[in-house]
Design a protein around this nucleic acid. Structure first.
Lengths: 234, 234
DNA sequence: AAAGATAAGCGTTATTTTTACACTTCATAA
DNA sequence: TTATGAAGTGTAAAAATAACGCTTATCTTT
């Protein structure tokens, strides 16, 4: 309707196909995982792939990515952020498609089975990834690099853990992401010194007789820290 | 031709207009500047705007951004990196256009006049920016934030300086970007301790009687530092 | 020709942050 | 009742950062 009443601008420009793809990270006790899908359409039907979709005329790019995530995992309110665009001319032999990749961080344990059963999807360990179509392997590598950088300077690691977690669990997460051991005692001191975690009364006893106290990330406290001019760094 | 012999995939997807926009930073002695253009086409003709263009069928997104930069500044080999996509449905009343913003860092002094005269372009101080069309002001703010973060952890500040520069000039650049004073002596020590600069015999005497030695950033030395596992941080 | 001015450059000390590592505690299993 | 093993606490050394005084080189002024 709008198109009929308004003058037509940009008439000389060529429209292109624009897609979004999602790199979905999960963390399960002691390993980082990636959610992959068996592609339903040609070309490359049935091969392993990131999940994606074309951006529709009447939805924003971000909304498109959120739609993809919701459709294939059933989840909303998942941390997601733009990774970047993949715009080489020949990247998709099916057609000229530009893809804007997004990466998402999921609390895995809770939703693990649900996703697995409903869709042709599977969680993969990072050292056992199958071949991926197009430039999806590059996207995954770039996302991993971004995750490593970003978790260091921003409090997004919590998005990969359940709401309540222990300090050792949090440390394990960072060890897996950074691929190197972190001193138990120094890690605890550092994270607690930021005063961005709430200590709960409950303990998690799944990994020791003694049990470890559960904590919760408190975004308000994080904001206060930022106001104080203190940087989040791990 | 390809389209004729291959099966047609993705037939149900709607093509969209995809553009690139460039946020062009420059640094001139003691101030950070932004290159803006008077828009040539409707809507918003003659208003101040970032420079951009539609991505063509047969060029990559990056190539499109480089083309824009070359066309309007005459320069190639300029540092440029993707900022992110701007994909709200109503962001451009002219049509549904998704823009992938890129930011570029230019050695200003050398090219200052040339650009100014050839195109309807003008360098603006950051505290004196005119109103900008569409979401371009947001793009500029986002680019500024990215520049602040990125210059801290990556050696890209040099892209804004002439090839040969003095330590005080480099410090001034960082002071302008961070908007806070840095201790002369500690700054010098820190940057020299990285051993990524080459000291030259020449002096620059434009800002003191004594004159300051000129240095040159050495990418090879920077790579060595990275290999040694040392982080670049200022 | 000497004195004054000023940014460039060098050095020292105090403070804070990071690293390394020893010891104690808690709750269960044997 | 005791042995076990991760959770949690403490402390000292080392490294990085911040604060700041002093000297040097060269031009301008007298």
């Amino acid at each position: 309707m709008k198109e009929n009443t308004s003058p037509i601008y940009y008439a000389d420009a060529t429209p292109l196909l624009l897609a979004v793809d999602c790199i979905i990270f999960g963390f399960d006790r002691d390993s980082l995982k990636l959610l992959l899908f068996q592609r339903k359409v040609a070309p490359f039907q049935d091969e392993w792939s990131l999940i994606g979709s074309f951006v529709k005329q009447e939805e924003s790019v971000l909304k498109a990515a959120e739609r993809v995530l919701k459709t294939h995992t059933g989840l909303t309110n998942v941390f997601m952020e733009e990774l970047g665009s993949y715009g080489e001319v020949e990247r998709d032999p099916g057609a000229r498609v530009i893809s804007i990749a997004h990466y998402a961080l999921m609390r895995l344990a809770e939703e693990y089975k649900q996703i697995d059963q409903t869709y042709k999807a599977q969680w993969f360990e990072f050292d056992q990834l199958p071949d991926l179509i197009l430039d999806h392997h590059q996207m995954v590598q770039d996302a991993l690099e971004k995750l490593r950088r970003k978790t260091r300077y921003r409090p997004i690691g919590f998005e990969l853990l359940p709401e309540k977690f222990t300090i050792p669990q949090l440390r394990m997460l960072y060890e897996v992401i950074y691929q190197r051991p972190l001193d138990r005692r120094n890690f605890r001191k550092k994270i607690l010194s930021m005063k961005i975690l709430e200590k709960l009364e409950e303990k998690d006893k799944t990994s020791s007789r003694k049990g470890a106290f559960l904590y919760r990330f408190n975004p308000e406290k994080y904001q206060e820290m930022v106001k104080r001019g203190v940087d989040f760094v791990i």
